[in-house]
Design a protein around this nucleic acid. Structure first.
Lengths: 160, 160
DNA sequence: CTTAATTTTGTTACATTATAACATCATACC
DNA sequence: GGTATGATGTTATAATGTAACAAAATTAAG
């Protein structure tokens, strides 16, 4: 679904942006947090907490709270999102422009595309105001098949 | 959020509709399934699986698979929905008209309003087609404060 | 610089949510 | 009635997540 030429570039970008954001906000982008974000970004799919834990274990004395706390920090700062329908976590691809975003989840290649658009906020407005409901947080997750998987029939390919 | 005069009527309606749907589809609306659906409908909030389990325990030899299987059956037949952001289950209020639906989740009174509208399908179409993504399942959960809770400041009232 | 306050991480223990696998029971169909 | 199918019971365990307190690291204050 994603067409990054070199995925290492995605990772580097994400880490640098995160570094910058933390600096601007006076937050500590510790080794652990950096490492967890790096692992989350290892591909364009989502990562399960206990998988991160395992991969982290090589370098850190990692128990569940370790990884959940790092994920919490990253989520609070918009660097990672939780995909509720999967109980999994995905790196945020637009950590600065935060309107509501939504996720396209491909059930073939497992990749996830995050889209940020004011359309979501507009729709939510429409859908809530006739009930006089004041929204604070929106979860919009769309599962289906991405273009690549439909056209290529090449599934589960890890792009570099 | 909901203004049913007699909630027992909601429950009865839900059970009768479920009964009818199962009959039409040649499915067995067993005592257990009926009882679980009844418990899910006990209020307009959502029910946690293990709470259902406990409440079920009085009448049934209930262990986790018992309740999860009943919930699975009810979900498959559109009688119950899972709210992913809460890991909880809610009775479907429109089991027959199934376009995509969305949920308004009040974080004060915990009630959940399910809305079914073609708007959701339309929006999903908009949001996916520029990515040539073919959607199959949509999760749209909107958390916020309902009108009653804003105006009354009466929280956690169980309406009959 | 040294101490005190704060934040982060480690650690133990446990809570919550969910499923696999196989046994038993009930129902439907021949 | 006997057999096939579906539903439930049962045991065990997997997967996900958190509370509570201890230790270490960092920052702030004197």
């Amino acid at each position: 679904m994603h067409s990054c030429h070199e995925h290492t570039v995605c990772i580097e970008d994400a880490l640098q942006t995160a570094h910058r954001i933390c600096e601007e906000r006076g937050l500590r982008f510790t080794d652990l947090r950096r490492r967890v974000l790096e692992l989350v970004w290892e591909n364009h799919g989502s990562a399960k907490a206990y998988d991160l834990l395992e991969r982290l274990g090589e370098d850190y004395s990692a128990k569940p709270p370790t990884v959940y706390r790092a994920l919490e920090f990253l989520q609070e700062n918009g660097l990672v999102h939780k995909i509720n329908s999967l109980n999994a976590y995905v790196g945020c691809s637009h950590p600065l422009q935060h309107q509501d975003c939504y996720f396209l989840i491909c059930s073939k290649c497992q990749e996830i595309k995050e889209c940020c658009t004011s359309q979501v906020a507009n729709v939510v407005k429409n859908l809530t105001e006739e009930s006089s409901f004041v929204p604070s947080r929106t979860t919009l997750e769309i599962e289906g098949i991405c273009q690549d998987c439909r056209s290529n029939q090449k599934y589960n390919i890890n792009k570099s």
